[in-house]
Amino acid sequence: MIRFNNVSKSYGDVQAVSDISFEVKEHELFGLIGPDGAGKTTLLRMLVSLLLPDFGSISLAGCNVVGNYRKVRSLVGYMPGRFSLYQDLSVEENLSFFASVFGSSIAENYHLIEPIYKQIEPFRKRRAGKLSGGMKQKLALSCALIHKPVVLVLDEPTTGVDAVSRHEFWDMLDNLKKAGITIIVSTPYMDEASRCDRVALIQQGCILSIDTPGSIVQTHGKQHWNIKARERYKLITDLEAWEQTASVYPFGQYLHLKLKSGGAGRNEIIAYLKRNNHEQIEACEGTPGIEDVFIDLMTENDKKQIEA
């Protein structure tokens, strides 16, 4: 459905996207996951034909997005980073405006947006500027859907939205996917990766890995130890100083400790910490998550770049 072929884009000296290739299949919910400045927005803007790639080509439903941008624009429903709504127009006015822009009407595709729009319909007379983050998000999604696009392109739709709304939003995307829409969505939140069929982890304009979230963890995940003790800061500095440590990072209440290969076991860890006067020590094996993988891949990538 969507193909990126060796796409590069730079702004002046800054290389925003370097030589990226990937494919999104039909009816897939595809996630671009990476921190701010990784190149997510640039990729999506090139996809919807708002930016031209410096090198490479992009196609959507068989159309080249540069040459055939009119066709592409009629197939795409796009929701930019900030919810681009007219703050001084009411919920209903926003929706009917965006419908009319695409030569459609609310009634025509109401069935498509109904499950989403119904939740904000009680406030349809309210100005968009007065809505909560979650409601703005739903309205913006309705506006992007109102012309029945084939591909839905969402740039950080869950940024600045509370946990409940985020959860509901992913449920909505699931339903849209079932309705046959191909969705490509970007997010800085690693924990949202599990909601996608496939994800690309991006960092500094490069794809670190691309696969189903499960396979990414399976392929790249390394064992680590969850460590906890009373004095957390001392625990970090002591473990960082230990010759057995490969890496140590705080993850919520625990530290994720990775040891050098062929290294120590649980007893040695505890012994080392006891030597350093730690109390209330906990140490157990942990299962890696997508964020652990991201950190590992980032570190590897940095090393590669330094070597190159």
């Binding site: 800061y233 001392k234 970090i236 964020e291």
Partner: peptide, 21 residues
């Protein structure tokens, strides 16, 4: 800490732990 990469984010929490210590 919104929007920063996972490593930077953890470096920041380390600063916070240090302040707390």
């Amino acid at each position: 800490t919104g929007g920063v990469d996972p490593i930077t984010r953890r470096q920041f929490w380390k600063l916070i732990y240090e302040a707390s210590a």
